[in-house]
Nucleic acid binder design. Structure first.
Lengths: 111, 111
DNA sequence: ACAATAGTTAAGCAATTGCTTCAGTGTTGA
DNA sequence: TCAACACTGAAGCAATTGCTTAACTATTGT
């Protein structure tokens, strides 16, 4: 198991590529095989497998092979971690703005 | 103004780099000048400016120059857009899981 | 006026990324 | 048994990325 920072790094890096985001998008509608994931993408199956391996390494996608088909599904916990990182920063900023607003309101009262 | 998909692309790409995430993290605690952003980073000021330009192009950060100092701040709207993309996919998946759970529960009742 | 400050820009370079093709492996249906 | 199927892995290659240094511009304090 990797520590949070490294895992976060892999996740955001994984999400940075449009093809990989399209794969995540497809998987959000239900599990799919590698070929099914590849079908809408204008690239070789091999390229898709390479993307998929990155997605799996990042923890965003989990896969299991049964016979000759690898079935992929989203790992919502990982998505939540990325979501959480962004959310924390945004909230920190917005709380700061609120405090600033309060301060300005108070200062105005004192005129 | 760019369309959503391209903007999202730039944002996730911007967030993929640890140095840039550190800059966003710093900015979530309040505005900062370029030099202040650079201070904790082990790289040249020039490199920081290049990262900053990417962050600004992605819409995650807004900057304004007064005199010779460029002051940077977070654009929460952009953060919310990235957050939203992830959230939608995760929710789609989780709703799907719920429906599946309901179906299985019903099927069990019918035995 | 001029030195220090704050940032910008361009050129260059090594490492990484996102593909490709090709040559496999293991699985399955006829 | 054996051809089609569903991947997998390695090698190679062009484009992009993340820096560096060096030369620059514009502002400010003394």
């Amino acid at each position: 198991m990797l520590h949070d920072a490294a895992q976060l790094d892999l996740m955001f890096q994984a999400l940075a590529d449009p093809a990989r985001r399209q794969m995540v998008d497809r998987l959000s509608r239900g599990p799919a095989s590698v070929s099914q994931l590849a079908e809408p993408l204008a690239m070789s199956l091999s390229a898709v497998v390479q993307h998929l391996n990155l997605l799996e390494a990042s923890g965003l996608v989990r896969t299991q092979k049964v016979g000759r088909v690898r079935t992929c599904q989203i790992e919502p916990k990982a998505l939540r971690a990325a979501e959480h990182w962004i959310n924390e920063r945004r909230l920190a900023w917005e709380r700061r703005l609120d405090r600033l607003g309060d301060f300005l309101a108070e200062t105005k009262d004192e005129t």
